[in-house]
């Protein structure tokens, strides 16, 4: 993340739950001096339409990331394991998985 200059408002990541039943989703970021101002800015910017249910703001520099650059070896555990997908195995009916849903 870019460094914060003295006196410059911090960057905040904004997460919005737009409908009941959904997880909060990252929608973008705002600049604000503090959490109250960040929430107000996020409200003005990301919830002008519809009936959003809840907003989170998190200071951008508080987000810890593992980027694609570290895919190897950091994410290596996920690769080359086709047996983790149902498609790796034969379907249980002659018609295949689609047929099951129909009948």
């Amino acid at each position: 993340m870019s460094g914060t200059r003295e006196g410059a408002p911090a960057s905040w990541e904004v997460f919005l739950r737009s409908r009941r039943g959904l997880a909060h989703q990252h929608v973008g970021s705002v600049r604000a001096a503090g959490p109250d101002a960040a929430l107000a800015a996020a409200r003005d910017l990301y919830t002008r339409r519809g009936e959003p249910l809840s907003l989170w703001v998190v200071r951008s520099d508080a987000v810890h990331t593992a980027s694609p650059d570290e895919r190897d070896p950091y994410f290596a555990g996920a690769r080359h394991k086709p047996y983790r997908y149902p498609e790796h195995f034969a379907p249980l009916t002659e018609k295949g998985p689609e047929g099951e849903h129909h009948e």
């Binding site: 006196g7 408002p9 604000a32 001096a33 503090g34 109250d36 101002a37």
Partner: peptide
């Protein structure tokens, strides 16, 4: 806004 945030 910056002064308020610094105080809270």
């Amino acid at each position: 806004a910056a002064a308020y945030a610094a105080r809270t």
